[in-house]
Amino acid sequence: MVTLRIQSGDDIIRAYFSNLGFSEKQLPALTRLIDERFGKVPTDGDELVAFIDAQVLRLAKSVFPHSVLPDEQLLAQFRLVFLLCNGAQKCTDEVLKKHRLPEGLAEQMRKTAFETAPGYCFSDMVPQKIESPKPSNFFHNLFHRAKKD
């Protein structure tokens, strides 16, 4: 697995939120908030990322309450749509405190969200035979025509 060159837990938190479009100005408040919530010095970067993911996933579920996507994809959808809507400019660390996005932003995100492909509607195609000609029934094959049912 990729090794994160971690200086501190704060590095990870800052990286996480800067990837969501938050500016340098907004990052200290967010970092403080996560630090407080996490409540310990992280020994493992993955653990901290999983913790922030859980916080963001809660937000994602509030924005897309009817989504049937698995958590990994829901999180990705949230990140994508949040970036497309410039979400970072429309909210503060309050969103993490309240676990809710401003209604205007949430509505915009719901409108911006899209399906990559519609839900499956499985049905099988009927296998066809293309029979190789046999000398004995060559002419029969050639002139016999199938009729539609």
């Binding site: 990837n19 994508l80 970036l83 990559t116 492909a117």
Partner: peptide, 30 residues
């Protein structure tokens, strides 16, 4: 690109199961 990163991960399942590749290939790539 975080936006592309999110998009790519969002779209992966619709592409169906991953093709087979050896552990060594992935290790070298990492």
């Amino acid at each position: 690109n975080p936006q592309l990163n999110a998009l790519h991960i969002l779209m992966l399942p619709i592409n169906g199961p991953a093709p087979e590749f050896s552990a060594k290939t992935l290790e070298m790539a990492q």
